[in-house]
């Protein structure tokens, strides 16, 4: 071992570290650029008036995204009401029944759903709901989004519950607690942080979805809270404002994007907080 050898090794080491840091930095760049542009262009538009007024007809100045915010919240609630119970139940089933026809069926459908392009899910919801009801509706949008949330919730519920030690279940059964109560009162509460995290992440995933809403919720420049009528949403409003030829509407698109990004970011941060803070110590 000569001194030169050691020096070369050290140089290689530094070179390697440098390369890793460089690529890590490059992969962070898009995030910062997106945040930078959206904040720079979007934040100026945001004021109470923007948040609380409806879109105006072409040619009139001003307008806002109130109906889009309400619509997005309604879509989240609708899709959550459908997908959360189904997803948690399927997750419980998977963690309790590792083998079996139904279990492998659910597993397959989770994989397929996760890989299905969101526009296809939109078309399916169109065929199922919009065509028979003969109208675009919040309901059909909620169903399309719930199909997108479902695989995430099923997967995280299953993974969370699988990590819960078997001896907890035995402790409960040995006290004479019936099986279904053991699942509801011991197993689910022990996995609550993982399950909530999964739900929040799946909500974050669908909040920005536009494609499945194009044929379902459609968009609506008026305020609507009827689930059987077309409804507006933030991503749709961004699309609509951005496609227009008017500079003021372009800046509205930035403003709505800003709201959407802040919402998604907040959901992610809350999810992370819950997964750390509420974690069950076994």
């Amino acid at each position: 071992m000569t001194g030169n050898h050691v020096k070369r090794r050290l140089a290689e080491d530094i070179f390697f570290k440098g390369i890793v840091c460089l690529f890590a930095f490059i992969s962070l760049l898009p995030l910062f650029l997106i945040l930078y542009y959206i904040t720079r262009n979007g934040i100026a538009v945001i004021d109470w008036n923007f948040l609380s007024s409806l879109p105006r007809p072409i040619g009139e100045a001003g307008g806002g995204v109130f109906n889009a915010i309400v619509g997005t919240l309604m879509l989240i609630i609708l899709s959550g009401v459908i997908s959360i119970p189904c997803g948690i139940a399927a997750g419980i089933y998977l963690s309790e029944n590792k083998a079996g026809k139904l279990a492998s069926g659910i597993r397959l459908s989770v994989v397929v759903l996760q890989g299905t392009p969101s526009i296809v899910i939109g078309i399916i919801a169109y065929i199922w709901i919009v065509a028979p009801l003969k109208t675009f509706s919040a309901l059909s949008g909620g169903i399309a989004l719930s199909i997108m949330m479902l695989p995430v919730i099923v997967k995280t519920t299953e993974e969370t519950l699988k990590l819960i030690p078997y001896h907890l279940k035995e402790a409960s059964l040995a006290l004479g607690v019936p099986y279904y109560r053991t699942i509801l009162k011991v197993i689910l509460p022990s996995g609550i942080s993982g399950i909530l995290t999964g739900i929040l992440l799946s909500v974050a995933r669908i909040t920005g979805e536009t494609a499945p809403l194009l044929f379902t919720a459609f968009g609506n420049q008026f305020m609507n809270t009827n689930i059987f009528k077309p409804i507006d949403s933030l991503p749709y409003r961004i699309f609509y404002y951005a496609m227009s030829p008017y500079p003021e509407w372009h800046s509205f698109a930035w403003g709505a994007s800003f709201i959407l990004v802040v919402l998604t970011l907040a959901l992610n941060l809350i999810a992370r907080g819950i997964s750390v803070k509420w974690k069950t110590r076994f």
């Binding site: 907890l168 006290l175 004479g176 607690v177 509460p189």
Partner: peptide, 21 residues
């Protein structure tokens, strides 16, 4: 009925297993 029986028979396991929640 097993659930009635198990209320009359206490069990303590090798590894302590209090309910974590």
């Amino acid at each position: 009925q097993p659930i009635i029986l198990r209320r009359k028979v206490g069990m303590v396991f090798q590894k302590p297993n209090p309910f974590p929640t």
